[in-house]
Design a protein around this nucleic acid. Structure first.
Lengths: 205, 205
DNA sequence: TCTCTCGGATACATGAACGTATCCGATGCG
DNA sequence: CGCATCGGATACGTTCATGTATCCGAGAGA
């Protein structure tokens, strides 16, 4: 067994630079905006030269897509994991706990907003975006439905609830970011979530 | 009275080119994205040279802000006017009529999304954006409250309703654009508006 | 230890966008 | 009818990002 294939190589050299480029890209996109970002800025922040970039990606667009998919997948997994742990009895507490698990991240919002705008111009990207949206619903809804069930409520139309929750989340996220530190906005956000959950479910006997 | 100040000059030369530049800018921003747009593209579409641009604006940022304020003000006026004419008895019909008055414009959404992202990076712009948001609520809410009153419902918390409506509008607009031509998405959008109106008002005996 | 390969660095040529300084023609006025 | 002015056009130098072609060194395999 001493001569087995050496799996020591956990992170290959290539994979490491790729990851560093992707990580730096998020920062740069968030700071400069996607359109204003350059290959060089990303490489500089990552500690590489442009040669490294072109050896890993063919274009900024490709990197942008890869980065967005990676981050959004990771975020989704985090949120799902957090939601599964939410087990408060009172609906208000559950919503509050759930919202705490879903970060309203300034930088990420900026990047997503621009990605969305970009996607609306590009059919291929639009499909990617739509698929991701669906994945989010599929991953989050079960947890929500179950949590509601625990508080004695049954969801009537899951798809409708899913769409409503996503819309409310996106819509209120902007408001929160535009009005940083406003407790009122945060409170209304919470209230709106509660109202929606209420509206799309009925008490089970 | 023959020698009165000649008010023949309805649109001065300067004002005309300014307007054409602003109009072209919307198209270019929508097509290319703000970050990818250049001064030259805008001038070319408007039928001018860069000289004209720099004689009217000092930077692309300035034009961007001017354009956004102009368009959004005009849009707001249109929506308000349309809302005032909505006078259906049944809430469903009223909502439907109101939503028809509020266009979900692809190009405009893209521009706004990018403006928002941009504004989140720039405190001055963020204030502009927040002020506009408030103006929208101030202009639209009275019409909504009155329309609800006509159907025998009284709004409990106007600010909360305003924030909720804006959030729902923004959030669902993206969904509509991402899934063009989907009747289901449109229907759910309508339903969500109804639910929110319901939740933030009570029947007045 | 030697060698071969792969991944990133370097150097280069090109093109695009910028902002300015200057010029010219149309338009309003006497 | 001629003049002064204003608004847009032209021309210029500069900066900056791009993509490619080539080079070099580190690390794996024998």
């Amino acid at each position: 067994m001493t001569t087995a294939t050496p799996p020591k190589r956990v992170t290959s050299r290539r994979a490491r630079t790729r990851r560093r480029l992707l990580d730096s890209a998020l920062d740069v996109f968030a700071e400069e905006g996607f359109g204003r970002s350059t290959v060089e800025q990303i490489c500089e922040r990552a500690g590489y030269t442009r040669g490294a970039f072109y050896s890993n990606f063919t274009s900024l667009d490709e990197l942008f897509l890869a980065m967005w998919e990676e981050r959004s997948t990771r975020l989704l997994a985090d949120v799902r994991a957090a939601l599964d742990e939410v087990s408060a009895a009172a609906p208000e507490d559950a919503v509050r706990a759930a919202l705490r698990a879903i970060p309203v991240d300034d930088a990420w919002y900026r990047v997503t907003a621009e990605f969305t705008a970009h996607a609306l111009r590009n059919p291929a990207l639009r499909r990617v975006m739509a698929a991701r949206e669906r994945a989010i619903q599929d991953a989050v809804l079960p947890a929500v439905v179950e949590a509601l069930g625990r508080t004695g409520r049954r969801v009537t139309d899951e798809d409708a609830l899913g769409q409503a929750l996503v819309a409310v989340h996106d819509g209120t996220a902007v408001q929160v970011l535009l009005d940083p530190g406003s407790e009122a906005v945060l409170a209304r956000r919470e209230a709106l979530f509660l109202h929606v959950l209420q509206a799309y479910s009925t008490a089970t006997s």
